[in-house]
Amino acid sequence: MNSSSTVQERVKAKIPSALAQNPRLVMFVVLVIVSTVLSKGVFLSPSNIHNMLRQYATIGIMAVGQTVVILLAGVDLSQGSMMALVSMVVAYLNVNGFGLILPLLAGLLVGALGGLFSGTIITRAKVPPFIATLAMASICRGLATLMTQSRPIYGLSKELLVFGRDTIGGLGIQVVIWICVGLLGIFLITRTVYGRGVYAVGGNEQSAHLSGINVQRVKLLGYAFSGICAAIAAIVITSRMDMGGPYVNANDNVQSIASVVIGGTSFAGGRGTVSGTILGTVIIAMINNLMNLMLINPYIQQGIIGAIIVITVTLNHRRAKVE
């Protein structure tokens, strides 16, 4: 073996194996075709696609953070509740005359601190991630409802509504934010020292530790990032709904995890990509869109997401076994 051949082979191997190893790409193509046929072309209309993306931007943003945590062999079950809490904090500060910037910063800070808190419990007290974040979910949910005795906060200032409603060059701002967060996630994971640390810690914590990686810090920052993503999603949804909503949609968290799973990231940690997750969210959006087009009972839809998680993980498991 020599270096030049590795590089060449690398490029050559990339294209065909990408298709073979990416069932989600196949899934994506099949969904596009099925949706287009069933909707008699309506699916492919720019407005349909745009609406779909706008609707799923919040899930997509959360899923980017969720990817990092699952790559670390953990999970964040508190994202949905964190979103409610941040929505309330942002709305509360906004209607009480703190303008735009301060509420946004405060929201992001709450998300980051919440993530750091979960991360601390996980790394210091060695509480399993799903339990620590389940507890965190309960805490955030309580705090969110506590602020106004479970009443939504209305009357947000106009400039706050920008994030859910306006467009830049025809693209909804929330879609732009999703793209930015996605690119940031991809950059963080593939182009920084931190990203390498995430893969190493998720893949084999002890080896990573003996290679000089600060395992605790990598994990802490991962949960903080997940919290920040939930906070960004909260800002978008607050803006879109024109209110601070204390209610938690349990399904949001499930969809965030489902995006990651469909995106090909393994719960064992160490394997997966942010780009896969973004595609995963798009696939979920398309499935839901398809179900809407087919006038399927909306109540069935959240069940379908659960079924998709089970099927995807099962298929991944099968494939791993065959290999």
Partner: peptide, 14 residues
């Protein structure tokens, strides 16, 4: 020793 599920390059670069 190694992070088995990652690439050779990543392991060396650690």
């Amino acid at each position: 020793g190694a992070v088995l599920c990652r690439s050779i390059e990543e392991n060396i670069s650690l």
